[in-house]
Structure formats: structure tokens, C-alpha cells
């Protein structure tokens, strides 16, 4: 079994909506790719590509 998480660049819309029906206890197992994608996309210290408004106090950023 390929245990490595998939390498999604973003949380998938379908996974996001489906995971709402998964008990919290099982999210890391049944939606491991989603958790990994969220971790990579949302917790972004030091990895924010140039041009992206990261923290987004938007009115000082727009």
C-alpha cells in the first residue's frame, strides 16, 4: 500500500464537503490527503509563493 500522502496542491472541494460527514475521530485516517493538503496550503510559514497575500490583512495588502 502506498502509505505516502498524496501530493495535492490544494484541498479538493469534493473531499472538503465529504469530510464534513466523517466523524472527527476518523478524519486523519479517512481523509489523510485532505489533512495534508490543508496543512500545506493553510499553515504556510515561509512557503508562501511570491505574489500571494498570505496573512491577508487585506487592506494593507491590496
Amino acid at each position: 500500500m502506498d502509505h505516502a500522502p498524496a501530493r495535492p496542491t490544494r484541498p479538493d472541494l469534493d473531499d472538503l464537503t465529504r469530510s464534513l460527514h466523517t466523524p472527527l475521530e476518523r478524519i486523519t485516517v479517512e481523509h489523510a490527503d485532505l489533512v495534508e493538503a490543508v496543512r500545506r496550503r493553510v499553515v504556510t510559514t515561509g512557503s508562501v509563493p511570491s505574489g500571494v497575500v498570505a496573512v491577508a490583512a487585506f487592506n494593507s495588502s491590496i
Binding site: P11, L16, T17, V38
Partner: peptide
């Protein structure tokens, strides 16, 4: 709004993954 809630749940699960199970986590589940 649903996707934002889902992202928050995923982050909560990531915290459990990162820091292990606690009494608070058990209560939440």
C-alpha cells in the same frame, strides 16, 4: 462556509496528529 468549516476540522485533526491524543480531544470526539 462549509469548506471553511471543513478546513477547520482538518486543522483540528492535524493538531491531534501532531500532538497526540489528549483528554480534550477525547471529549471533542
Amino acid at each position: 462556509a462549509a469548506t471553511q468549516l471543513s478546513i477547520t476540522r482538518a486543522l483540528l485533526a492535524a493538531c491531534r496528529d501532531r500532538f497526540g491524543s489528549t483528554a480534550a480531544w477525547d471529549l471533542l470526539i
